[in-house]
Amino acid sequence: MSEFRAGGTDLSERRRSGISRGPVRDVGARPELRRITATADGGWEIGAATPMAVLAADEAIRSGYPGLALSAGALATPQIRRIGTIGGNLLQHNRCWYYRNPHTPCLKSGGDTCPARAGNHRFHVAFDLGPCVAPHPSTLGAALLAYAAEVVTDRRVLPVAEVFGDGSDGSRDHRLADGELLTAVRLPPAVAGERAAYHRAISRTYAEWPLVEAVARLVVLDGTVAAAGVAVGGVAPIPLRLPAVEAALLGNPPTGALFEAAARRAADGARPLPMTGYKVPLLVGTVLEVLERAGRA
């Protein structure tokens, strides 16, 4: 089975270590996949091979979808953002230290067990949703969930949430079919007056896979929260939208107390592993962080 390659920043590492082999089909150079264009309904469409740095710097995205631009500008490193693409970001494979080690096969590499679950899963999920307990790596996946974006492939259009599924399939990191080409990401029309924030909890200052990451977008109208989108990464085998947090925000005045109460709902449904209990308070703290910042922005 051949594998598509856009920027190659994920695939090249897997090929160097030998966990991915086989032929490669390059799509990164296709000009029709590198574009940011307005759609008829007032939204925007981003070609799948658009580099993340281009996305982060794009004026239309920065003003209309600040949570997406902030996420794209904060993930990975400057060098990776210059060649890694939005499509590759959504469809990249997870970073589990068992999966990425060529000597430790697992569910994701054709094996039949998950050595992390019974082993060392210090940086794994706090929402145990399925057989694989590696956090989904896609920062943009979370941001696009918060924007209720859609994904366009050469076969269909589907909500971004369906790209990731519900975490019950432990054998893959996304649900596109083999050979299905992602061509674009489609954003609904921007909402005027939106404010957003992105944050990742890490040990160093920069360039570290998040322990927990969160993105929040808020629209405040007449002193109450009129729209909210909150999504998180680093905690579940899929990027996770947090409807309970959003519901707690809607219709209420954006006060510190509200943000604290809403952030606490981020832990709803959390089921940490023996070594990941810390991720639950960290998740609540990170969500609070982005809510406060979006509230201030």
Partner: peptide
């Protein structure tokens, strides 16, 4: 590192710094 983390392999591609350890040769 061979994994895009350390930047030791950084080169300019059309003037932009990128990590050459993850940059496919055909690109």
């Amino acid at each position: 590192c061979g994994a895009g983390v350390c930047g030791a392999c950084t080169v300019l591609l059309d003037g932009q710094p990128v990590v050459s350890c993850l940059l496919p040769t055909d690109a």
